[in-house]
Design a protein around this nucleic acid. Structure first.
Lengths: 409, 409
DNA sequence: TATTTTTGTCTTACGGCTGAACTTATCCGC
DNA sequence: GCGGATAAGTTCAGCCGTAAGACAAAAATA
């Protein structure tokens, strides 16, 4: 009897409805990825669909308040003027949440990429109580949701960023060393209602996605953000993410990019992970401050001031960090063949002092160096990037599958 | 005038024909990935399509000789017996070609995965003349094609494996150090007619794809080959590939997996790449033979014999190689979060002697070690794996888009 | 004002899938 | 040995989404 209920594995069959969903997403992407507002006719020409089909699809997106019709621009050419289309402001929004060692907070973005609400509480959350902290963040989230709902917006979902080993699918935080948290279900502890679907993610991974500005939401076109890059964020630990075509490379569990524990010198100092000579012991924040003779809890600005003052200890330790970083990034590039590296966290401030050493090491060690240049760039989105990244991930889901938000009929 | 001819960027629009192509591929995959022959009804149940639709799609695949109807098996249950479906033998075939330092040759596989023709010429091709060698391989290919065509088979395409930096899209070989080749167009030099589309690929990458046995072509079900793994092939150099769901992770240019040049010890010996302490200098074939006090042109068997005889120099150098390999693989796993490693080339023979050291290093250095085990396995397909991988890649193309091989009407 | 040009809508046709009835082929129980 | 049960595969009308082309609308241009 239970024979042929068949697991229904593999990709789903395509039916007529699938066609419509596909093309609806195609049209939505066309609107969202266009630098300037575009017309129905332009979308038809670019996509290969007929103007008739594009029209019906656009009408659905407009009815769902995903796309907005702008007032007609003053026409320049002959012919009936086009109706400009653009992402709809302040209708569907995404919520990014984060708990990190130095703050907790939330940020709400709309489909245009604008911040419509935000609340950030700086705090020292080393070895904090997860239940208490997450309940507090839950209340912050509720406040933000109430505010934007009062303005008539609909919340598409939320994404919680955590600085640790996260199993996104199971919704479990395995361990977050710096928070002193382990083995818990953060979504349950947040205590948001079932009306807002919450997923969790690693902080560095979500911050990485925030860097792809042209992804979901058009920024100003002067910023040609790359779509394939490595994002490396330096703090006490050094996390990173592999982004290909504005999407994360996920690996087996999502635990990619642990570049902080790449071997720089096996005879080097012992790392808190138990091994020796990891990158973190050369280019992590604690190692840098200690090496420069500064207190471990000093802010990055203190180190930068020491560098600006040309203090020899600071200059030496940062150059050594640059060499170590270059060596580890060379391994990274040799293994995954991605040659644009965005540096976040403490690195943008230090980049002038470590760039030369890092680039020398990259030139020496990257096998493909004769045919391609590895580019080191400061990450464009800095402050609490994971909040932006989390909110954008939610909105990317809306744009890539708008059918869930479009009326049936 | 030239305004709106629009580049037609992005994914194509979905039309009715797209639906059919999608479902045709879905049905083909169902037949090819099934362990035993399956019926139309079983495919319908598994895919969610109706039996009517599956029937018409299967009929097209049968007419195109991609799928074959087997004679009915003796029925066990009540009801009309099913017609078993399986990949069609000896109809569409793929050609794998390879030039490497020690041989050149070709292999023809049919859709069942069976070798239907093969020709391998051992030879020393260090610093050879590319035009002469590729012309020779072209003649071998012509002979193989003539043979299989005489038996009524159709050649779907060919794939040429080369040991070097290959730009697959442009069809250019940038450099193959061991052959002494650089900057050439191997497809043109092969001189095959336009009736057989030839693509080129890196040897290690294609060998890696050969390891996913259940991919295109069902092997015996006793071998549960993984679908996501790292493949690391040791020879003079050490190449590798990242395989996710039986597909290559391509990176920017396809130049991923250069694990031979991951840093093991920056104070280590100088590598031929110009840097110091690369893995290749510890675990490459030349380094191993030299360290064991054997001639550099000795075959691997000589080293294995020395190990079996418990010669101290050999044991020491292989253990050192195991540690180095473990260190480099730990970096690899930390960066890409893939925990199954298939070892090919010279490593399967050496695995008993280097496994302990490598696994110790992996346990110490892989950050996720407490939550997941890194598994080292000998690669299942050994002899000239790139030939098999190349042919399978061609056939994978057929199964993933059968519509090109199915009659219009 | 008439013509040209381009946008957006309307109508008809077509292709591909669904669902339900129907046919075919086997097993099972009496 | 025969009828019912069971399952596989086929046939046919109907639905849905897109294509194709005509048509309406709105602006620049002569």
């Amino acid at each position: 009897m239970n024979r042929s209920v068949a697991t229904r594995t593999g990709p789903p069959a395509a039916r007529q409805a699938t066609l419509r969903e596909h093309n609806l997403a195609l049209v939505a992407r066309a609107v969202f990825e266009s630098a300037q507002p575009c017309s129905r006719a332009a979308i038809a020409a670019a996509s290969g669909l007929t103007r008739a089909t594009v029209s019906t699809l656009v009408d659905r997106l407009v009815a769902a308040a995903i796309v907005a019709e702008l007032p007609p621009a003053t026409p320049q050419r002959a012919g009936r003027p086009a109706v400009p289309l653009a992402p709809a402001p302040r209708s569907l929004v995404g919520l990014g949440l984060e708990v990190n060692v130095d703050y907790l907070g939330g940020r709400v973005l709309d489909l245009t990429g604008a911040v419509v609400a935000e609340h950030v509480d700086p705090d020292d959350l080393h070895d904090s109580d997860p239940a208490e902290v997450l309940a507090r963040l839950g209340r912050i989230a509720q406040d933000l949701l109430a505010t934007v709902r009062a303005d008539g917006m609909t919340v598409a979902g939320a994404r919680l960023a955590l600085p640790g080993l996260v199993d996104t699918r199971a919704g479990r935080l395995e361990v977050a060393p710096n928070l002193g948290w382990s083995h818990l279900d953060p979504v349950r502890l947040l205590g948001l209602g079932p009306d807002v679907p919450v997923e969790i993610g690693n902080e560095a991974k979500l911050a990485a996605l925030a860097q792809a500005s042209r992804g979901v939401v058009p920024d100003d076109a002067s910023d040609p953000a790359p779509s394939t890059y490595l994002y490396v964020s330096g703090d006490v630990g050094i996390g990173s993410a592999i982004v290909v075509d504005r999407r994360l490379f996920h690996g087996r569990h999502g635990w990619t990019g642990e570049v902080g524990h790449v071997v720089v010198d096996p005879r080097g100092p012992r790392c808190r992970c138990g091994a020796t000579g990891c990158l973190e012991q050369y280019a992590g924040k604690d190692a840098l401050l200690r090496g420069a003779g500064l207190p471990v809890d000093a802010p990055t600005e203190t180190l930068v001031a020491a560098l600006d003052a040309a203090e020899p200890a600071a200059l030496a330790v940062v150059e050594r960090a640059g060499t170590a970083l270059g060596s580890a990034l060379a391994d990274y590039v040799n293994l995954v063949d991605i040659d644009t590296v965005l540096l976040g966290g403490i690195y943008p401030a230090l980049l002038p002092y470590l760039r030369a050493a890092a680039e020398a090491e990259l030139r020496a060690r990257v096998l493909a160096a004769p045919w391609t240049d590895v580019v080191l760039l400061p990450a464009p989105v800095g402050d609490h990037a994971a909040l932006t990244g989390g909110a954008r991930e939610v909105l990317r889901g809306v744009v890539e599958d708008p059918s869930a938000w479009v009326a049936e009929d």
